[in-house]
Design a protein around this nucleic acid. Structure first.
Lengths: 313, 313
DNA sequence: CGCTATAATACTCACTTTGAGCATTTATAG
DNA sequence: CTATAAATGCTCAAAGTGAGTATTATAGCG
């Protein structure tokens, strides 16, 4: 939808800026969440926005296909930010990031691109086997130390509260959605590599070029939030799947385990899936019925139900 | 948080693009939702992103203050899009839009800027007095007509279903969050002015320059969604307020009426507010206790509760 | 062939959260 | 003193959730 305007709203600025497109492309591969990477798994697929591109989305699709040989299915915009420090002095770069979901097709196109488990970059985000030992051993003590370094009692308490909330320490419950807040706090505390160039990282977890790891954190956070109120997981599933497979995928993304029976009840009562009539005999137990996603829900359920106490009409 | 990179990820594109910042600045004035406008209320505050700006956000703040004399409190990014059709041939414009919330201070700075009720632009969005007559009279019949114009039976049914869902026709319930979808559908159906330049609009509602009305729709939709799970309304309230005032503000934004007792229960059990000890005797009834927002919740409640059936640890 | 391990699937039950509404209290304006 | 307008309190049923227990269907094995 575009509108021509006879009178431009602004005189275009003299210098202009460079625009860059960046993709967080996600697939679930053997029950683990993966992202597409390039440059020895240290960067996300990206490239400049050019005048030949029809739109931001299509520009990004072109870059990703060119760099990874992999097409994107579902896409949504993540965030746009401007960097002061890169490139020429007077030239700013604007980066527009997108979240993309796809089914892995194992087209081993190489081209310096590869799928990587996203927990390689954020080991502290996987709580499927309970709270990682990392927490007791490193995260909590180091954050405590960082909090104690603050000048002033109030500032120390404040730092510790922030740490406790975002990492689920003390009485606070773990909240899997706070991926970005956690990364930024670790960055601020100097515990991840991008922060201290050349120094040995305090925490395990692969670093990335520029702020790509931060963008990845943004993407993970968005996806973890979104699976709760929109049927996006299905973009990551094969055409037919068992309910346990579906559950494992959600668990992989959320980084936590779910209650099996209640998970089924949720899926069924929301009528998100329908039976294919097929079964899978591959698990060694009772065969699982295979389901497919009910495309109709995309139309029916335009949005989630309200949380406001509405008045009847 | 910025990271220097010795090797830039990409060689900046030769031509570059122009970047524009646009604000949807909201305030609630006498129980009606308002937005800040410029140019005879036909445009949103905006201006080019320049190399002197420290960041996108601060650039936008500068423009808005300059154009309207009004500072912004809370801000969040809305969406970024690229337009082909504006400006020079080889020069693209990237527009980055923000949602801003503020308390109106009635600083009548004029300067060609003014607060306008957002329902001036979207009369069909206000359902506080029930479904507007507009629906029976114009919206429904015109959408029916538009649906019937589609080639092929399937396409006709499809169009009508989309219309029914987004506008709450037939059996579908009204969903106040679908502001953008509704505007885009009306645009597609040729019922709003930006679409048919020079023609008389079929629907009432003030048009805007370029795609500013679409950006406004995006902002309203975001805000209507967000008030349900984040305490953002308080950014729009005075320091002390009664619960009914608070309710009226939410109703103004959502465009629907709420159940009074249940609304209070919600606010109270979530401990969003605390008593100030003061009362308001201005309403002619029993005096209302005045409350203030509990700043602490911003820290405590980092995010909403889960909707996934978690397994206990 | 019957036994065992592994899942899938079914059903239960207490508890919490909502939607809807009635009832009571405390003001102001005549 | 009375009518009116709110504010505030309280109840109750229905729906939604968390946490289990119980039953059914396969494959693999001795």
């Amino acid at each position: 939808m575009t509108t021509e305007t006879k009178e431009p709203l602004h005189i275009p600025a003299g210098h202009g800026v460079a625009a860059e497109l960046i993709a967080v492309l996600v697939a679930v591969i053997s029950e683990a969440p993966h992202i597409m990477t390039i440059r020895d798994a240290r960067a996300l697929p990206s490239g400049p926005f050019e005048s030949s591109h029809r739109s931001l989305q299509s520009g990004l699709r072109e870059w990703v296909e060119q760099q990874t040989g992999h097409p994107i299915g579902y896409m949504e915009q993540l965030y746009t930010f401007a960097d002061r420090d890169r490139g020429e002095a007077d030239k700013r770069t604007i980066s527009i990031s997108y979240l993309g979901l796809t089914r892995e097709e194992s087209r081993a196109d190489a081209r310096d691109s590869e799928w990587r488990d996203w927990y390689d970059y954020f080991p502290w985000e996987d709580h499927r086997k309970g709270t990682p030992e990392l927490f007791e051993a490193v995260v909590a003590p180091r954050l405590r130390q960082w909090a104690d370094e603050a000048p002033g009692k109030a500032a120390r308490a404040d730092r510790w509260q922030r740490a406790a909330i975002t990492f689920g320490l003390d009485e606070f419950a773990w909240n899997e959605e706070l991926v970005l807040q956690r990364y930024e706090l670790l960055y601020e505390a100097g515990l991840v590599t991008e922060a201290e160039r050349g120094q040995k990282p305090v925490l395990p977890g692969r670093a990335m070029l520029a702020d790509h790891r931060r963008i990845l954190a943004t993407g993970i956070a968005r996806l973890r939030a979104k699976i709760k109120y929109r049927p996006v997981v299905f973009e990551l599933m094969p055409p037919a799947f068992s309910l346990l497979q579906l559950q494992r995928s959600v668990e992989a993304l959320a980084g936590r385990l779910l209650h099996k029976q209640n998970f089924r009840r949720l899926i069924e009562q929301q009528e998100l899936v329908e039976e294919t009539g097929l079964s899978s005999f591959e698990t060694g137990g009772r065969p699982a019925k295979l389901f497919r996603f009910r495309q109709a829900v995309l139309a029916e359920r335009a949005a989630a139900g309200t949380k406001l106490p509405l008045l009847r009409p």
